[in-house]
Design a protein around this nucleic acid. Structure first.
Length: 465
RNA sequence: GGUCCCAUCGUCUAGGGGUUAGGACACCAGGUUUUCAUCCUGGCAACCGGGGUUCGAAUCCCCGUGGGAUCACCA
């Protein structure tokens, strides 16, 4: 009996500023798998591209993950036994490993200038040949001492590269389509394809969950693992999340980061639920899950291979369901920042009653001001003069009411009956006078919550009294 | 263009040699109701095309078509 090795997965974004929903879903799946297997979820920063570095991007990534509840067990800030967790702080490691490959004849220094490289590339393009860099094209010796060089990983002839992807099944790549890629750049930084292997190995990553765009670089990664005689992790390539036009989701689609959903007043658990449903399902007809439930049912084998289109309508629906599942008290706490400034003049008990009334028509918290404004400030008057006599009768009828919902209902229905009018008509006029809206929560509840003083004041005002 | 991959309602998806192809969102209709919403009921709506294998194909195979990814000293 050998003990199963611990599952260790990582999310390794590069701090280039923008973290879209598709990236975040990769993080989510990694997190889910770690939780499902009681493994570790690690956050590593891949900042080897100095040109694209964006300030504060790391904070932005952290904020996104934290908001969604994707807490990492190990990584930046948290620390751990496999640090540092920022690639720019591991430069010596990559250099050592690249050097070792050179010594073993598995990689070589290349002094080819960028100009010559560009020329080579253009030449191939003119000849309509795919450009593929091989060792015989390389300049193995410097023209001058101290000329800059890169270290290229050499693809030697050999059998096809075969691996089994958890999502895509068995993959076979011919070596001859691979070219001698740069492992260490002339600035001393590693390239992604080299650093990712060194780090994943050193950090003992067991499963590599990443976007499908990395599928075609996997053979290169595998060859590096083999060159070092390292154990190859399980690869799990995730399908992309697409925009409504079926192209990859991007800023262009108004694609939002998690933070933008937070700012619009979406519940993180709803976004969590929705994101997980894009490319994963457990085979049942259940739609609504808590994060903990998802961690329980999540498994690699049920990840979809085909892309998913992001559907904002479905997210809205799902958020509404999560909202309605929450107690009003919880909801009040969660929505605290979204209430209009006027609401602060009222106590919590009152806001709680208001929330109770709008809860079932709330899709996200940003709608709160629009839905609740009349509970805090008198609405603009927009009553037709010919309905004013009716409102006067309403005022008279309610003047000695105790304003309980029951009493309000009895009196108002009695009035409608006495006047021989349609309920909807009369209630509609009252609603408009009191709320300024044609669509609002139930009339009796609204009047009750508003209270006698406010209700009668608005009614008298609307009646022109 | 080379390489690799994907393909069930408009969308997220279940299923998978014999099913009335299931659920959910959206949409439409009806019910409840004082409006809106919630809720309930019902409806519309799908196996990309063509061959093959088979008694039988949406399901397996092949070829098309469509879509995607990738071909950097980016990740």
């Amino acid at each position: 009996m050998t003990e199963k090795p611990k599952v260790r997965v990582r999310f390794a974004p590069s701090p280039t500023g923008y973290l879209h929903i598709g990236n975040l879903r990769s993080a989510l799946f990694s997190y889910l798998y770690a939780r499902h297997t009681q493994g570790s979820f690690i956050l590593r920063i891949e900042d080897t591209d100095r040109a694209r570095l964006v300030e504060d991007a790391v904070d932005y990534v952290k904020e996104n993950l934290l908001w969604l509840g994707l807490n990492w067990d190990e990584g930046i800030e948290k620390g751990g036994e496999h640090g540092p967790y920022v690639q720019s702080e591991r430069l010596n490691l990559y250099a050592e490993h690249a050097e070792a490959l050179v010594e073993q004849g598995k990689a070589y220094r290349d002094y080819t200038s960028s100009q010559r490289l560009e020329g080579l590339r253009q030449h191939a393009q003119k000849a309509k040949q795919p450009f593929k860099f091989t060792k015989d094209m390389a300049q193995l010796e410097p023209d001058h001492k101290d000329d800059p060089f890169v270290i290229r990983f050499e693809i030697k002839p050999g059998p096809n590269v075969i691996w089994n992807d958890a999502v895509w099944g068995e993959q076979t790549w011919k070596r001859k389509v691979l070219d001698d890629f740069v492992a260490l750049k002339s600035d001393g930084f590693p390239t992604y394809n080299f650093a990712v292997v060194v780090d994943d190995h050193l950090m003992e990553i067991s499963h590599v969950l990443r976007g499908q765009e990395f599928l075609s670089t996997t053979p290169k990664n595998i060859l590096v693992y083999e060159a070092f005689d390292w154990q190859i992790p399980q690869f799990v390539h995730l399908p992309p999340v697409l925009g409504p036009d079926k192209s990859k989701l991007s800023k262009r689609h108004g694609a939002k980061s998690a933070l933008e959903y937070r700012d619009a007043g979406y519940l993180s658990e709803a976004v969590f639920n929705y994101l997980a449903s894009l490319g994963f399902n457990d085979g049942t007809t259940q739609e609504i899950y808590t994060p903990a439930e998802l961690a329980k049912v999540f498994n690699l084998g049920r990840i979809q291979a085909s892309p998913a289109i992001f559907d904002p309508d479905r997210l809205d629906w799902m958020n509404g369901v999560h909202i309605r599942q929450m107690t009003t008290k919880q909801l009040l706490v969660r929505s605290a920042e979204f209430w209009p400034p006027e609401a602060k003049k009222f106590d919590e008990a009152y806001r709680l009653k208001v929330l109770e009334l709008i809860k079932e028509r709330l899709k996200y918290f940003a709608e709160i001001p629009e839905l609740t404004s009349f509970f805090f400030t008198d609405p603009k008057l927009n009553i037709k003069p010919d309905s004013q006599p009716m409102l006067l009768k309403v005022v008279n009828k309610l003047e000695d009411s105790d304003f309980s919902e029951k009493d309000l209902e009895n009196r108002l229905r009695a009035l409608v009956a006495a006047e021989d009018l349609k309920t909807g008509q009369v209630f509609g006029i009252i609603r408009l006078a009191v709320t300024g809206k044609t669509a609002a929560p139930g009339l009796f509840e609204t009047l009750h919550v508003l209270g006698k003083e406010t209700s009668l004041r608005r009614l008298r005002h609307a009646a022109g009294a």
